[in-house]
Structures are given as C-alpha cells and as structure tokens.
C-alpha cells in the first residue's frame, strides 16, 4: 500500500468501515510510515477542531426574536 492509497481511505478507517484485510494492510503501512502517522494524527485533529468550531449556539437575542416572530405568525395563521 502506498501513502496515497493509505490517505485515500482514512475517512473509512476512522469510521471503522474497512474490511479486516484492508485494515491490516493499512495498519502495517502506518507501522512503517512516519509521515502517514503524522498525517493521520493531524487529520483526526482537524476533524475535531472543525467540529468544535462549527458547534455554534444561536445567540439568546436571536432566539428571543425568532420566538416572538413565530408566535406572531401563529396568531395570524389562526
């Protein structure tokens, strides 16, 4: 397995969606390839960081506005 082939299946690896034989081949590649170990570590960290950055909360002021607006819509509806 080349580095390019290893990197192509990282998402499946993290989801544990690889077949046992491919998984074994990939882990053998990692064992002998420092650049791919660095790639995997930074790829995982990137996934976690992007998720953390995307975990935004609706501002309270906006929640209040939305609630009032929708309750008014509901009144008009009825």
């Amino acid at each position: 397995m080349t580095c390019q082939e290893a990197i192509a299946i990282l998402a499946d690896y993290l989801e544990m969606a690889l077949t046992p034989s491919v998984l074994e081949e990939l882990e053998r590649h990692f064992a002998g390839c420092e650049p791919c170990r660095a790639y995997l570590a930074t790829y995982k960290k990137t996934r976690d960081l992007a998720a953390a950055a995307n975990r935004v909360e609706m501002p309270e002021e906006m929640k209040r506005r939305l609630r009032e607006f929708l309750l008014e819509q509901l009144r008009q509806n009825g």
Partner: peptide
C-alpha cells in the same frame, strides 16, 4: 495533498512529518 509517482506525499521532510496534533 500532492503525491509523487511512487505515491509518497510531496514536500520536504519537515512538511511531511509535521504533527501539531
């Protein structure tokens, strides 16, 4: 990432080994 003909990641050693995780 870019790869050479052998399927290695392109870039110097410091780049391919960079691990800030």
């Amino acid at each position: 990432p870019g790869f050479d003909a052998d399927g290695h990641r392109e870039g110097d050693r410091a780049w391919v080994l960079a691990d800030w995780s």
